[in-house]
Every structure is written in C-alpha cells, then in structure tokens.
C-alpha cells in the first residue's frame, strides 16, 4: 500500500506562489483561504544572510494529531496513499483539528467544515501529480510513494540533505525539504 509524501527542493524554490495559485484554481479554494503557502526563513545579519524558502502545506503526518482528536472520524487516514483527508459531510466544525495541527495547515471552509491540502488525490487517482507539483516552474516539488525505495521521493530523501518541519512534534510529517 502506497504511502504518499512530498520532497521539496528549497534550493530551487523561488517562492513565487505558483503552487498556491494552482491549488486555489484546481480545488476551488475559497477567496481569502489557502491550502498551501510560502514560508521564508531568514537567518543572519546583512550581508551575511541565509534564506530558506519553503512551499508548505498539510504534512499528511504518519502520526496525525488532527485525526486523533477528531470526534466524528471526519478527519481520517484515507487508505489510498495513507493520506490525511476530511469528509465534509461528517465534520461538525469543532476546530479541534485546527488547534491540534502544529503546522496550522487547516482552516474552516466558509461552508463550515475543516479544509486543507488533499494531496490532490483526485488528480493522483488519474495518474497526475498534485496541482502544486505539476505547475511549479522551478520543478522544486516531487510527489510519490515513500514506501517504495525506488521512487523518486525515496531516492531524493536518501541522497540529499533534508529536514522536516517540527520533527519534535512527533507527528512524523511526510513532506521533506531538501537543503
């Protein structure tokens, strides 16, 4: 059974937000909200500065606190790719998952349910990449099966320096940032 994840090469990313726009049009994300976003981390003092630019989104954690805290099972681990998904018609909008997510990756859709990145499973099922990955002009994003040792994502994680976000949160996030 596949376990989907992403590898994002921060050395290529320019933070253009194409991923954000593509996600919004692909998924009809309502105005004022986003399922993915750009974080810029600047260290040092001018001119000795380092900067990391990251395209961030739900980490589809192996150990997802949003799923654990959901009182209705609306937030769940989908069998397909073991991704974290929300079923709008089961969600009561209690916002426990919003509070539980250390990445602040969720929001309440104006229709009332918890909303977030789906890894574009509707595209993946058709053999396409998630919208953000497929649109990226710098090709900094890779999507695939982390359980397959021969997948591009697995190979990149093995061969390049990388980090995840807030590993100390114990969520085992599945988005890896190459540095």
């Amino acid at each position: 059974m596949a376990r989907f994840g992403m590898v994002i090469d921060t050395t290529r990313c320019v933070g253009c937000m194409d991923c954000v726009v593509a996600c919004k049009t692909e998924n009809d994300v309502p105005e004022g909200f986003c399922r993915d976003w750009i974080t810029t981390e600047v260290k040092g003092e001018f001119p000795e500065v380092q900067m990391e630019i990251r395209s961030e989104r739900c980490n589809h954690c192996d150990n997802p606190p949003c799923v654990y805290c959901c009182p209705t099972g609306a937030s769940h681990v989908e069998e397909f790719g073991q991704t974290v998904q929300v079923t709008p018609e089961v969600c009561i909008g209690c916002k426990a998952c919003l509070a539980a997510c250390p990445y602040d990756a969720r929001f309440i859709n104006p229709k009332g349910y918890a909303d977030k990145c789906t890894f574009c499973l509707h595209r993946v099922k058709e053999g396409l990449e998630p919208a953000c990955v497929s649109v990226c002009p710098t090709q900094c994003m890779h999507f695939g099966d982390l359980d397959d040792p021969n997948s591009e994502v697995s190979r990149l994680i093995k061969s390049r320096d990388n980090h995840t976000l807030l590993p100390e949160a114990g969520t085992n996030p599945r988005i890896f940032f190459l540095t």
Binding site: D9, T11, R12, V14, G15, C16, V42, F46, P47, V49, Q50, M51, E52, I53, P137, T138, Q139, C140
Partner: peptide, 26 residues
C-alpha cells in the same frame, strides 16, 4: 526562472550583485 532553477539544480556557481539580498542572492 525555469532555466535559473535548472542551473542552480545543476550546481552552477551563481554570483549575485544587488543592494538587496534577493531570492536569487539566496
């Protein structure tokens, strides 16, 4: 930009002259 990312990905040596620490500078 696509080619810039390719060049960076290929390990090109980048020299940036700018009063501002631009994205390219990073």
């Amino acid at each position: 930009v696509q080619e810039f990312a390719d060049a960076v990905g290929n390990g090109a040596s980048v020299i940036v002259v700018d009063p501002r620490f631009s994205v390219a500078a990073s």
